[in-house]
Write a protein that binds this DNA or RNA. Structure first.
Lengths: 132, 132, 132, 132
DNA sequence: GTGGTCTAGACCACA
DNA sequence: GTGGTCTAGACCACT
């Protein structure tokens, strides 16, 4: 799993998920995390595809989906830009966070792990992470 | 999303993921949760397929993947049985739990949400759940 | 994999191969190895099935195949007996041995392992076995 | 038993074992033997199926099992490739070789053939092979 | 009766 | 174009 830096974005792609989805997620997370300034220009589809060694269609699809969520906007002849609307970014961030939380709680329930045990597990992981 | 009860198993299938995987997960979770007794016979491939309105091959694939993880074992001409080895079950349960925890923590990190904020989110969800 | 002693025969059954074949092999090997005296009476089908917790049909099939090779013979109303013909036993033994040798050499060839390397591997295994 | 050449692979299929397993083994052995270069593209599922006169599903199953062992990797929409990781190949090769050796030694023991006699048999076979 | 293999053919997602 | 999933239905081996 190689990691490639393009502008302010860091991409690491593997085969476990669709490539367009991974590209999409990396960009979305960078925006949500605040790693990139709102209103900034994104690399062109062709450029990013070249650097990530991907088919332009793959990058295009990632951009399209981000556009659909209004996280980025394409201006004819000028390129693709990150939205300037903080509200949108915040909403997306909250939605993603909420999704992750729900997925986690749901997993614990499906495995029959109660809240206390789940919290213990969480602490263990956080603890291990600090060891790295 | 209809829910179907077969023996001690409850299945609810949708189209978001491969059917065989959903069947697999339901059975695996039931075993991990301790809902079914170890060593018990599973419904036959044909039987489960009939009740879930699936093709036998789809059910079979779920069974085969569980077999590879040693959570179930197939005895020629007799049927398919849940493993009697508690160790295996426990390991699988721990692996699944750990996977979920790591996915959650990773999501939070990718979104730039720190531990405190993450915990707050978790509590909110639990609170909402009680409302349902 | 539990091991069960019945008369002079030791059976250890698993799920990797057909049960009737495993029963057949255990008996055949015991005869080839000289562990049981020629002309001796075998346990009855019902008896062996009971002790091995198998379906009588399974044991029956094993006996039938051994009968086909004239390694055992069933005498109406008296039971099943190991052949008294040493020639037959010797031929079967040689055939099985030859089969094993050919399988081994074939495997090595298919993996592109030459004779020298194969011999080295063989010695390693034998050496490890002595450690046990 | 006809033999079919496809790219750098030679397939000869019979009815003694599942077809998907034979396909799997031929590819695995070719990789272990070093007959094909690591990182190379395999024939597409449909293509190989066509040439071997098999159903695509049969070929796919062979590919999937090889994928699980990390001997090959499938890249969405692009095709199936032999792993580039020499380590994995080497491990698999060693495992297969070891398996064959153990099977052989075990057979000899079960037949009550001692080491010296086994070595004699081995030499005979090699001798016969040169006659062919 | 059980599971396992195989075929034929449809439909989908991805690049 | 690629692989992945699913169905329908046949046939086989084992118990």
């Amino acid at each position: 799993m190689e990691s490639i830096q393009v502008g302010n974005f860091k991409f690491s792609l593997d085969l476990s998920k669709p490539l367009y989805e991974q590209v999409l997620q990396h960009i979305r997370q960078a925006i949500a995390r605040g790693d990139v300034q709102l209103g900034t220009k994104l690399p062109s589809v062709r450029d990013l595809a070249l650097q990530l060694k991907l088919n332009p269609n793959t990058v295009m699809r990632a951009y399209q989906e981000l556009d659909r969520d209004h996280l980025i906007e394409t201006r004819r002849g000028q390129g693709t830009f990150i939205t300037s609307d903080y509200e949108t970014v915040d909403q997306v961030k909250k939605a993603l966070a909420s999704e992750a939380v729900i997925a986690f709680v749901s997993s614990m329930e499906k495995l029959g792990i109660n809240r206390l045990a789940a919290e213990t597990l969480l602490k263990e992981v956080v603890w291990h992470e600090y060891c790295d």
